[in-house]
Amino acid sequence: MTNSENRRVRASQKRQRLTAAAARVLHEQGVERTTLGDIAREADVPLGNVYYYFKTKDELVRAALSEHSAHLNELTGRLEQLSDPRDRLKGLIEAWVGRREVAARYGCPTGTLAVELDKRADGTLDAEAGAVVRQLLDWSGRQFRELGLSDPDDLALTLVSAYQGMSLMANALRDPDVMTREGTRLLRWLDSLRAPDAHR
């Protein structure tokens, strides 16, 4: 590998470290309380490096949203290995419950960011946060559609709304068990859903 290729690889790795750090810190502290210095410390890079890759905090927020989108793609990609769409949806719920401690402490990464961005006066990034939520809705809707269920998009909305609600309640009450109890209820709900012709 040439020196210039090495530099490109190192630069790409540093940018990825900063992006991952931005996703973590913005989730834990929120946009308004987070500084570029916080991101630099979390990524263990000099502050000047942050400015080299990201000129503004908004660029870091955008990078954090892309990180959330990538994590969602990674999770749903793993779930796609399951042959049964009901099992995929159950795997999604189990993944949510598996992060119950984080949810109880900080809420849903994308949901909390979407709410905070919506409150900002400039309103430039809230649609991008909404796009990540839409990504989850679309994937869930496809699973319900594969199951042959009526109103698959409405069922996806019910599922994702339940996740946002249980994340919010777990965070507000600082109680990870909320995620466990509500996750169990969602799994039972999924098992109860049957395609119209299955009743015959």
Rank of each mutant, 00 (worst) to 15 (best):
E67R: 08
H68T: 02
H68C: 12
S69T: 13
S69W: 11
A70H: 15
A70N: 14
H71G: 11
H71Q: 12
L72S: 13
L72P: 02
N73T: 06
N73A: 12
E74M: 10
E74F: 13
L75Q: 11
L75R: 12
L75T: 15
T76G: 01
G77L: 02
G77A: 12
G77P: 01
R78T: 13
L79R: 02
L79D: 06
L82C: 03
D84L: 11
D84T: 05
P85K: 10
P85M: 10
R86Q: 07
R86W: 00
D87S: 14
D87H: 07
R88A: 09
G91C: 02
G91P: 04
L92M: 06
L92H: 03
L92A: 04
L92V: 09
I93Y: 03
E94Y: 08
V97F: 12
V97R: 15
R99E: 10
R99W: 00
R100W: 03
R100E: 13
E101N: 07
E101S: 03
V102G: 06
V102T: 12
A103R: 08
R105P: 05
Y106V: 15
Y106R: 14
G107W: 08
G107E: 09
G107Q: 13
C108S: 15
C108Y: 05
T110Y: 09
T110C: 14
G111V: 02
T112F: 01
L113I: 13
A114R: 07
V115R: 13
V115T: 15
V115N: 07
E116Y: 08
E116F: 09
L117W: 02
R120M: 09
A121K: 04
D122V: 09
L125R: 13
D126G: 02
D126A: 09
E128M: 09
E128A: 15
A131F: 00
A131P: 01
R134P: 00
Q135L: 13
L136W: 00
L137M: 06
D138R: 06
W139A: 05
W139F: 14
W139C: 04
S140N: 04
G141N: 03
Q143L: 06
F144S: 04
F144L: 08
R145G: 04
R145Q: 10
R145T: 07
G148M: 05
L149K: 01
S150Q: 11
S150H: 03
D151G: 04
D151Q: 11
D153G: 05
D153M: 07
D153F: 06
D154W: 07
L155V: 03
A156F: 02
A156C: 05
A156T: 06
L157T: 12
T158Q: 06
T158C: 04
T158P: 00
L159M: 11
V160E: 06
S161K: 08
A162H: 03
Y163A: 12
Y163Q: 06
Y163G: 11
Q164R: 08
M166L: 14
L168K: 06
L168M: 10
M169R: 10
A172S: 14
A172R: 14
L173G: 03
R174L: 12
R174D: 13
R174M: 11
D175G: 02
D175E: 13
